[in-house]
Computed example of a mutant assay.
Amino acid sequence: MIERPRPIGTTEGEPAFEDVLRTVEEMDTPDGHKAELIRGKIVVSPWSKLRYSRPMRSLREQLGQHAPEGHIADTSPFLFGFPSAERGYGPDLYVVDEAALEADGRHADSTALSLVSEFTSVSTRDADWQEKLQVYGQLVPVYLVVDMQAEEITCFSDPSPQGYRAHKTVSFGTPLPVPAPFSCEIDTTAFKAGG
Rank of each mutant, 00 (worst) to 15 (best):
residue 7 P to E: 14
residue 12 E to G: 14
residue 16 A to G: 13
residue 22 R to Q: 10
residue 23 T to N: 12
residue 24 V to L: 00
residue 25 E to I: 08
residue 26 E to F: 04
residue 27 M to Y: 02
residue 28 D to P: 05
residue 30 P to V: 14
residue 34 K to N: 03
residue 43 V to F: 01
residue 46 P to M: 10
residue 47 W to V: 03
residue 53 S to Y: 08
residue 57 R to K: 15
residue 58 S to L: 12
residue 58 S to T: 03
residue 58 S to W: 12
residue 59 L to I: 05
residue 63 L to F: 14
residue 64 G to E: 06
residue 65 Q to V: 11
residue 66 H to A: 15
residue 68 P to L: 05
residue 70 G to D: 07
residue 76 S to Q: 09
residue 77 P to L: 04
residue 77 P to I: 01
residue 78 F to S: 01
residue 79 L to E: 10
residue 82 F to W: 04
residue 83 P to G: 05
residue 83 P to S: 08
residue 84 S to H: 13
residue 88 G to C: 10
residue 92 D to W: 00
residue 94 Y to N: 03
residue 96 V to D: 06
residue 97 D to R: 14
residue 98 E to K: 11
residue 101 L to H: 02
residue 103 A to W: 00
residue 106 R to F: 01
residue 107 H to C: 02
residue 108 A to L: 01
residue 109 D to A: 11
residue 112 A to H: 12
residue 113 L to Y: 01
residue 115 L to C: 04
residue 116 V to W: 04
residue 117 S to L: 05
residue 126 D to K: 06
residue 128 D to I: 07
residue 128 D to Q: 13
residue 129 W to R: 15
residue 131 E to C: 04
residue 131 E to Y: 01
residue 131 E to Q: 13
residue 132 K to N: 06
residue 136 Y to M: 08
residue 137 G to M: 07
residue 138 Q to M: 08
residue 138 Q to P: 04
residue 142 V to H: 11
residue 143 Y to V: 05
residue 144 L to N: 11
